[in-house]
Design a protein around this nucleic acid. Sequence first.
DNA 1: CCACATAACTTGACACTGTCAAGATATGAT
DNA 2: ATCATATCTTGACAGTGTCAAGTTATGTGG
Lengths: 202, 202
Amino acid sequence: MTDAPTKARKRDGSLPSALVDAGIELLRERGSGGLSLRECAAKANVSHAAPGYHFKNLKGLSTAIATRGFGHFVDAMEKRRKSATTNPKAQLEAICQGYLDFASDYPELFLFIFSGQQFNKDDEPFETVASKAYAILREACAPYVPTESRPEEIEILVWSLVHGFAHLSMTRKLDNPQLGRTWPDFDVVIGHLFKSITAAQE
Amino acid sequence: MTDAPTKARKRDGSLPSALVDAGIELLRERGSGGLSLRECAAKANVSHAAPGYHFKNLKGLSTAIATRGFGHFVDAMEKRRKSATTNPKAQLEAICQGYLDFASDYPELFLFIFSGQQFNKDDEPFETVASKAYAILREACAPYVPTESRPEEIEILVWSLVHGFAHLSMTRKLDNPQLGRTWPDFDVVIGHLFKSITAAQE
DNA sequence: CCACATAACTTGACACTGTCAAGATATGAT
DNA sequence: ATCATATCTTGACAGTGTCAAGTTATGTGG
């Protein structure tokens, strides 16, 4: 479909990326459980065992897809962060908005990444991009951690709230879409959040 | 294993429940993706197509498992709620603790239920127990919604926080178990939560 | 007690999946 | 032009979900 006329793919190293593309397309079409090595191969116009050569097994392809997902994740957060003023509140708000941008722009990748399934934790590109995402959030939270308090407290507070909000919005809206009308904006939720952490500061 | 000697199962209507047992055991052993109709059948000492007769397809069995999961979910919350004083703060705290009890007692069911996969929304037992869970949380939040404010705001705030905390605790601790040491207790997180919602009340 | 209707399974088949081994083929270096 | 190697293909095997058709138990009416 993407590669209509050419019967055999040029061996230019583009296949792994094309297979990840196909996998994401598959996730979008059939949900988190609909990933298949053979269908990815078919979408990329290669034989059914070609994905196995590059990714070893399904977990390998899943890890590559998750790596792509985390890439979009950090991009979304950094894009919002760069176009915000430098004061801590604006920065943290921007990070959270980026988080939600990612969840609504790539719902299947969001669900896939946080579905609880295990990826190859020894995969180097995956580990670096994933920890980069955590680092961004941690940095934005830093100004709000009280002196002589472990930073984890605030980080988990912020992270849990935005992640829980995104995750629940997603799953509930998938269940019954007409519920989107009564669903609160994130602004009011994050309003409460700032009341909480500034109260903790004093 | 559970039914060692008897070669053929008695037709007493116990098979559906036994298959759900087997499915949960399978989820515990192999994670969210390791569910299989045929293995459930083998564990219950019936033929490979027996699950299909009761649950139609894999989605049907999954829905039955999720129904069981939501049952434990509401049990955990109500158990904590009943052994708490009747003041609103203790009640809400109890609900949240029950939420986390469920997540740590049945991690595979927690992940399975909230993995984003679709269940049979027309399944009557599933729908009733699921909405009962939501009703419990909603009731506990009711005292905290400000007058002339939509209840969803506070509900989502509380729900997102406790769900996000549980979900992140789970997935991160699955990734690297030694992280459990630095992970904050829920008490301190819920402390911030109450600062937030009582600040909203005034 | 016996036929019989029906619920509860079993057997068998088909298309599909992941994964491995072995063969084919293009690409770049010598 | 030869050759080594990375990249892909072909073929096979075990396992999966799902359906159709056959079998067996169970309880009900005669």
